[in-house]
Every structure is written in C-alpha cells, then in structure tokens.
C-alpha cells in the first residue's frame, strides 16, 4: 500500500448526499479482474452531463474530493476506491462515510477524512468561489487546512500508523501466526467444513 503522510491539492465539491457505490463505479465495470483501469468508470452516469462538476475545466487535476454525507453507501466493491484513486483522487472529505467503503479506502491508502458538515460547507464555499484554492490534508498533524479553514480530524491510531508507514495488513497479521494456530487447535468439532479432509 502507498503510504500517506500529507497531501495538498485542488478540490472538487460534490454537493450530493448518499453517493452510493453504484454511482461511484457502476456494476458493469466490476467485470475487470485487475485493480487498475477504472478511471473512466468513475461517476460514469453523471459524467455524461457536460455540466457535471468533474467535467468542468477548472476541476481538471484536482485531487481532493469534498463530498456530502453518507458517501460510499451500498456495496462492498473495493473497485469504488480503486476508481477514485485511478482517476487521481488522494483523499475524500465528508461528514459521514459508509463503513465498508471507509475500511476499503484506508486499506488502499486513499485517506477518508471525517469533518463536521459545517466545515465541509466551508470547504465547498471556498473552492466554489475560487477553484484554484488548495486544501492540505495532513495525516501527521491530523489537520485539514485551507485559506480561512483549519480543522482537526480523528483517525484511530492503528489505522493512522498503517497509513503513515504504508504497511500491508497481511504481513502484520502473519507475525501472529502462532496465535492463529493456537485458536484453530481449540475450535469445536461441530463447526462446519466445506471440504472433507
């Protein structure tokens, strides 16, 4: 996983709540068997509209998505995270994220930042007034800054450490292989098995 320490970039204000994973990446894109090449599928239906915020010339190259509440609801598809990353987003700010999407984002190095809605409103107004404004998301200091806006955010210490270091969960878990083996040895015999071994 790519490490995340701090990032500064221009923003895209997405004034919509309940942006579900079918909007982020429609199902027909999920047939791919790789983790890349999803950028053209990102918000595919909405991008057909020339006026959609992502299509505006002043938003090209923006890397910070500032979204409405309940971003990422719906399916468990990690493709939603890959699509945002493939497109070029490094971080997403919202007042509330769906659980599975949040977990997926943090496992891929896409930093999802929870801020109060009034701060999200302030960031929207700022970037709408001046699209060249840059927002900094600093994971070391756990702080989001932009002209006239300074907001602390929370992230549990363990997730933060893994992001800062770019650590892979599987190798961390495999350090505790003995604990797994010990647990397996005492599982009850009535637990089902899919294979007869």
């Amino acid at each position: 996983m790519e490490a995340f320490t701090t990032h500064t970039g221009r923003a895209v204000p997405l004034r919509r709540s309940n942006v579900d994973t079918d909007q982020i990446i429609p199902a027909h894109w999920l047939k791919k068997v790789t983790r890349d090449g999803f950028e053209d599928g990102l918000f595919e239906a909405w991008r057909k509209d020339e006026e959609f915020i992502l299509n505006r010339p002043e938003r090209q190259g923006a890397t910070v998505l500032v979204a409405g509440p309940d971003f990422g609801t719906g399916s468990s598809r990690e493709h939603a995270v890959w699509a945002l990353q493939n497109y070029g987003f490094k971080t997403v700010i919202s007042s509330r994220f769906a659980d599975i999407f949040r977990g997926n984002s943090l496992k891929n190095g896409l930093l999802t930042v929870v801020l109060p809605q009034r701060t999200v409103d302030a960031l929207w107004e700022l970037t709408e007034a001046d699209p060249t404004v840059e927002i900094t998301v600093d994971l070391v200091a756990r702080k989001v800054t932009a002209p006239g806006v300074e907001a602390d955010f929370e992230l549990d210490e363990n997730a933060r450490w893994r992001l800062l270091e770019g650590l892979d969960d599987i190798s961390i878990t495999l350090r505790h292989e003995e604990d797994i083996a010990a647990y397996e040895a005492k599982r009850p015999s009535f637990k089902p098995r899919t294979l007869t071994v």
């Binding site: 399916s75 468990s76 598809r77 990690e78 493709h79 995270v81 599975i100 977990g103 997926n104 496992k107 891929n108 549990d156 969960d169 599987i170 961390i172 878990t173 495999l174 292989e177 797994i180 397996e184």
Partner: peptide
C-alpha cells in the same frame, strides 16, 4: 458482514480479520 477485496485476500491468507 461484507468485506472488500483487500480483506478477502487477508482472510484467504490468514483465515482472520483485524476488526475495530
């Protein structure tokens, strides 16, 4: 509960998941 693909890989490799 539903999981993402990174977690699918994690369960395949370790039969466990770190969960908050």
């Amino acid at each position: 509960f539903g999981i993402g693909t990174s977690q699918v890989e994690h369960v395949l490799a370790t039969q466990t998941l770190p969960m908050a």
